[in-house]
Amino acid sequence: MFMHNKRLQYTVRVSEPNPRLACLMLEQFGGADGELAAAMRYFTQGLTEEDPGRKDMLLDIATEELSHLEVIGSIIAMLNKGARAELSEAARSEAELFREIGASGISAKEAILFGGGAALIDSAGAPWSANYIDSRGEPTVDLRSNIAAEARAKIVYERLINITDDPGIKEALGFLMTREVAHQKSFEKALYAIADNFPPGKLPGVEQYASLYVNTSQGEGDLTGPWNSGAQWDRIDDLTETMPIDGGTGIPTVTLSPDQVEVAEQMALRLASVPEDRLTGAEIGAGPGAGRTSTGDKGGAADIAEASSTARAMSF
């Protein structure tokens, strides 16, 4: 059950309307790393969580994210206040309004469909999507994803802070950014409160591959560090000597029934390549810049004529 308190969690003070900035702020309203996505991610996780401590934490943070949605939505509404009134009341001429939509950064969807109001779209006008929610129903997976989501949101807030000189907006965004930091800390504590939290899930990794580092990108720029060298790792550099890694042939196989073998052989015979060089449509139409063809390397009209003549001869 929810009860709404009309006071914001953080007071919004906007110096002056700025529709262009409002459009950018939509990224944290209806965007992939925005507050609605965070609230829905944590609510859906919390509703199915069996552990009482994690359930309480997830529902607490999910509810707070809704309050953050209200803060960022209020910023957008204040930044759009003048433009919204002009669009709704036709306070300016048609040409002026049309020019204002482009000059102010308001998208056509934001202006025409939503009348300059805060809408669940991102800064490019794309509608919010449940595809942003990447929960898997496994706490050790979801908590790591939540930590990453909060980190991404913090970076977006940093960039929004950097593009405004409005002190009130900077303060409000700084508050929202800092709450992302606090949530990361809570999620990490919850993750490490699970004794066996790595690797994720129930099944153990295959021991012979769990400490293997395969140096597949070789050449200038090869570096070593604790991520690929030392006692923790069995490192493979000579790929030609060690692959396939399971000691097999590396050739995929499948067991078929006799009927399936017969059908597969028929299909292979029907689709088999022939070694002779056959004239193609690309060669018949080849012009300058087409490169060498099977009819020679003259290129241009002479090559086309010769190819056409050859094609006619082959058709009889």
Rank of each mutant, 00 (worst) to 15 (best):
D122K: 06
A124I: 06
A124P: 03
P127C: 03
W128T: 10
S129E: 07
N131E: 09
S135V: 07
P139I: 14
T140L: 06
V141G: 06
L143P: 02
A148G: 04
A148F: 02
E150N: 10
E150Q: 12
E150S: 11
A153Y: 00
K154G: 03
K154P: 00
V156K: 08
V156R: 15
Y157F: 10
E158P: 02
L160V: 05
I161H: 13
N162Y: 09
I163P: 11
I163G: 11
T164V: 05
T164M: 07
D166W: 01
D166L: 04
P167C: 09
P167K: 00
G168I: 09
G168L: 15
E171Y: 09
A172L: 01
A172F: 11
F175A: 02
M177V: 02
T178M: 14
V181M: 02
H183N: 07
H183V: 00
H183R: 05
K185M: 03
F187W: 09
F187T: 04
E188D: 05
E188A: 12
E188F: 09
K189F: 09
Y192D: 10
Y192L: 03
Y192N: 11
Y192S: 05
Y192H: 10
I194M: 06
N197F: 00
N197M: 07
N197C: 10
P200V: 10
K202S: 14
K202C: 05
K202W: 03
L203V: 07
P204S: 14
P204T: 06
E207A: 04
E207H: 05
Q208W: 05
Y209G: 09
Y209H: 12
S211A: 06
L212N: 02
L212M: 06
V214D: 01
N215A: 15
T216D: 14
T216F: 12
T216V: 15
Q218S: 13
G219I: 02
G219M: 01
E220S: 08
E220G: 08
D222W: 00
D222P: 02
L223Q: 08
L223N: 07
T224P: 08
T224V: 14
G225W: 14
G225Q: 12
W227F: 13
W227E: 15
N228C: 04
G230D: 07
G230M: 11
G230W: 06
A231W: 00
Q232E: 15
W233Q: 02
W233N: 05
D234W: 00
R235M: 11
I236S: 00
I236E: 01
I236G: 01
D237P: 00
D238L: 03
